[in-house]
């Protein structure tokens, strides 16, 4: 249903960040195409995916930027945070090191993104529970203390992937709505300015990735 895909009320730009190998690309492919690859290719630079979901009675198109996790690339990829209204900071629950550097990722993020950005901490690979190195309570507490949403997922067995994206998109949506009410006079909302830009041309190619699964 191509028309439904392009018929949206909001476009939310969401970035996926975190160390290399924590499963960002697979989280995204699970969410947008319900696919998982044991050996997905290394992401270099940035890749894109979209999916349209319903929040209340609004159609929200998530425009997700999947960035390369390599430290050396961070200088490049941080430029892509601009204009993002949401971010998933992903770590691997079986590798403590990927959790230790979450602080650094957050700093990068707040340095380059807007302050109002909604951030979710995602502990991925719960299917490897026997190799867990990061206790869930610890991560949850960290998230609470830093005002982040938190969820644990498994891109492999699909646990919580849908919920993770839905939760953050809903949160962004509510934030946008609140902001809209606050400055109902002004026609653009800073959080949603992406949408006005991207909705302009309706002559867009229909791509399968966004079709409901």
């Amino acid at each position: 249903m191509g028309s439904a895909e392009e018929d949206y009320n909001f476009v939310f730009k969401v970035v996926l960040i975190g160390e290399s190998g924590v499963g960002k690309t697979n989280l995204l492919s699970r969410f947008t195409r319900n696919e998982f690859n044991h050996d997905s290719r290394t992401t270099i630079g940035v890749e894109f995916s979209t999916r349209t979901i319903l929040v209340g009675d609004a159609v929200v198109k998530a425009q997700i930027w999947d960035t390369a996790g390599l430290e050396r690339y961070r200088a490049i990829t941080s430029a892509y945070y601009r204009g993002a209204v949401g971010a998933l900071v992903v770590f691997d629950i079986t590798k403590h090191q990927t959790y230790d550097v979450v602080d650094r990722w957050l700093k990068e993020l707040y340095d380059h993104a807007e302050a109002s950005i909604v951030v979710m901490l995602v502990g991925n690979k719960t299917d490897l529970a026997q190799a867990r190195e990061v206790p869930m309570e610890e991560a949850k507490m960290f998230a609470d203390n830093n005002g982040l949403l938190f969820v644990e997922t498994s891109a492999l067995d699909s646990t919580n992937v849908e919920q993770a994206f839905e939760t953050i998109l809903k949160e962004i949506f509510h934030k946008v709505q609140k902001q809209k009410q606050r400055n109902s006079q002004s026609n653009t909302v800073s959080l949603a300015n992406e949408s006005t830009e991207s909705t302009a041309p309706t002559q867009t190619e229909k791509r399968p990735c966004c079709v409901a699964l």
Partner: peptide, 15 residues
Amino acid sequence: ILLQMDFIHIAQFLT
């Protein structure tokens, strides 16, 4: 094809 696309579709297409 690219001339018919908007930002996100171009970005998706080229990557």
